[in-house]
Design a protein around this nucleic acid. Structure first.
Length: 477
RNA sequence: GCCGGUGUAGCUCAGGGGUUAGAGCAAAUGCAUCAUAAGCAUUAAGUCGGGGGUUCGAAUCCCUCCAUCGGCACCA
């Protein structure tokens, strides 16, 4: 059993400001990272941005900016999202980082090339001049680009291809035997069914005049790397794969890649193929989250139902947003967001649930002169009750059941409210002091349980218990 | 078109052949008054998508229909 833990999010594409879906991914990964650190694992948590591609070059051009200036600006937004959500990442990789990222990517390429996993082949694509990009057949409607109402040109160009098909069998084996575990099962089945239909080789470069904003192919100036090798390699470039030093040896393979369902195949097929080709170990787990709808509908600018993570953070603060993302959204399925649901959960769980319990506990203790002593043990019933929650929360988080884990914690909160009700410690009785201490003990345990989920709140809980000063934790809305 | 998922209380979901179908939120009533008008208890609420079948017995298995979501490779 290794005592290291390497976890990554996907790298976000910087053609637009961050989306609530990326906030979900960050918070889920952050929970896992904090959970592992708490258990004493040497943890490394990576996130970052994917900054190349034709789309970005085009967006920058529209704004009259250089691509690099454009992405620098967007990346700043991503950094403020990471800060705003109190994400504990150890590193932040950018695919435009020529010192950190490029050398490793080039090494991957050269290795593929050296092993004869690359070959040149003529590629026929449908190029829409209006979009300035290749379209897939599925983008077309009646053979016409729906955005420009024009048939795309059939363009032939010579590109490098990666022999992904050579690795099909091994990928399939690794996934079906859970050597690479894909969570949830439905995604695993999806990938396996896809694999069973047969895998084709993929083009991994574009001509440099079509894709000017990208990493040059080593030894062939006429070609730039297409997204696959460039973006997926971030997980190892951030560990400085180019030099394969201590950091790389210690942390690779990744223990968890957190991704969204739209990029399942890239990670579960292409990335595994690349790793097998260059002889690296495969990631242990790929955790796939779903999408967040807004009022039951896909978010779109035209409907005007886009949820802006910054507005939420601004209005409600960090932990309420983290709480909703972890408890209001099924971890691996699609979830819905509305302000009503958000505020409802905020009031009933955070203000009336956790906040009120802390308030009555600390209030009682102060009033009756009971102080929290760290080494002191509560009655065995209480001790067992807390232990049970700790054990279940640990197991649930290990199994990516974040929502259920929080429900387990809130179950302890409701138990405690019931216990207070039953014992009536505001009245004089023989065990009054003990009961008040026990409620403090549970609150203290709650702070420990909550640390990975709501780190800021957990700290406040601890402070109030230790100082005996009660303060509103979550103002009711 | 092919493959797969989902459809259970007003809302979010659990249960996957066996006594009167469960939880949380929302609702109603009562109790309590330490606490953020918070808390606790109780109650009410469901033809378990429709129809057919297998079975002593189906929400659960099979067939079919309906609704809905996803996958069917170069979508960031």
């Amino acid at each position: 059993m290794s005592d290291k833990f390497y976890i990554t999010t996907s790298i976000a594409y910087t053609n637009a400001p961050p989306h609530i879906g990326f906030a979900l991914e960050l918070v889920q990964a952050d929970l896992l990272a904090r959970h592992k650190r708490k258990k004493g694992k040497e943890t490394r948590f990576l996130t970052g941005t994917d900054e190349h591609g034709q789309k970005i070059a085009k967006k920058a051009k529209e704004k009259g900016m250089k691509p690099k200036d454009f992405v620098d600006k967007t990346v700043a937004d991503f950094h403020s999202l990471v800060d705003g959500l109190n994400i504990s990442n150890d590193d932040f990789i950018r695919t435009t980082d020529r010192e950190k990222h490029w050398p490793s990517v080039k090494k991957v390429w050269k290795k593929l090339d050296k092993n004869n996993d690359l070959y040149k082949k003529k590629y026929t694509g449908y190029y829409c001049v209006g979009c300035e990009a290749f379209l897939t057949e599925r983008d077309l409607e009646d053979g016409v680009c729906p955005n420009h109402d024009k048939a795309p040109e059939k363009v032939e160009e010579e590109n490098y291809f990666f022999k992904l098909s050579d690795y099909e069998e091994e990928i399939q084996k690794m996934i079906s035997e859970d050597e690479v575990r894909i969570i949830p099962d439905s995604r695993k089945n999806e990938v396996l069914s896809f694999l069973s239909e047969g895998v084709r080789d993929i083009s991994v470069s574009r001509s440099a005049d079509k894709l000017e904003w990208g990493i040059p192919v080593p030894g062939d100036e006429s070609q730039k790397m297409y997204v696959w090798v460039d973006a997926l390699s971030n997980y190892i470039s951030a560990l400085n794969y180019a030099e394969e030093g201590e950091k790389f040896k210690k942390f690779w393979p990744a223990d968890v890649h957190c991704i969204g369902k739209d990029i399942t195949r890239f990670h579960c097929v292409i990335w595994l193929g690349i790793l097998l080709a260059i002889g690296l170990e495969l990631p242990r787990n790929i955790f796939v989250h779903g999408f967040i709808t807004s009022g039951g509908k896909k978010m779109s600018k035209s409907i005007g139902n886009v949820v802006d993570p910054f507005e939420l953070l601004e209005k409600y603060g960090t932990d309420p947003v983290r709480y909703y993302l972890l408890s209001g959204i099924p971890p691996a399925g699609d979830g819905d967001f509305t302000i009503e649901k958000f505020e409802n959960k905020y009031n009933s769980d955070l203000a009336d649930g956790l906040g009120n319990l802390l308030s009555r506990s600390v209030g009682l203790a102060t009033k009756k002169g009971v102080e929290f002593e760290k080494g002191r043990k509560p009655g065995s019933k209480i001790r067992k009750r807390v232990k049970k929650t700790e054990k279940e929360v640990d197991e649930l988080v290990e199994n990516f059941e974040f929502k259920k884990a929080l429900e387990e914690i809130w179950d302890l909160i409701h138990f405690t409210d019931g216990y207070i009700e039953k014992k009536r410690p505001w009245e004089e009785s023989w065990d009054q002091e003990k009961v008040i201490f026990e409620t403090l003990y549970i609150c203290y345990s709650l702070h420990e349980l909550l640390l990975p989920f709501l780190p800021g709140t957990a700290k406040k809980v601890k402070k109030q218990i230790e100082s005996g000063k009660s303060k509103i934790l979550f103002e009711k809305l």
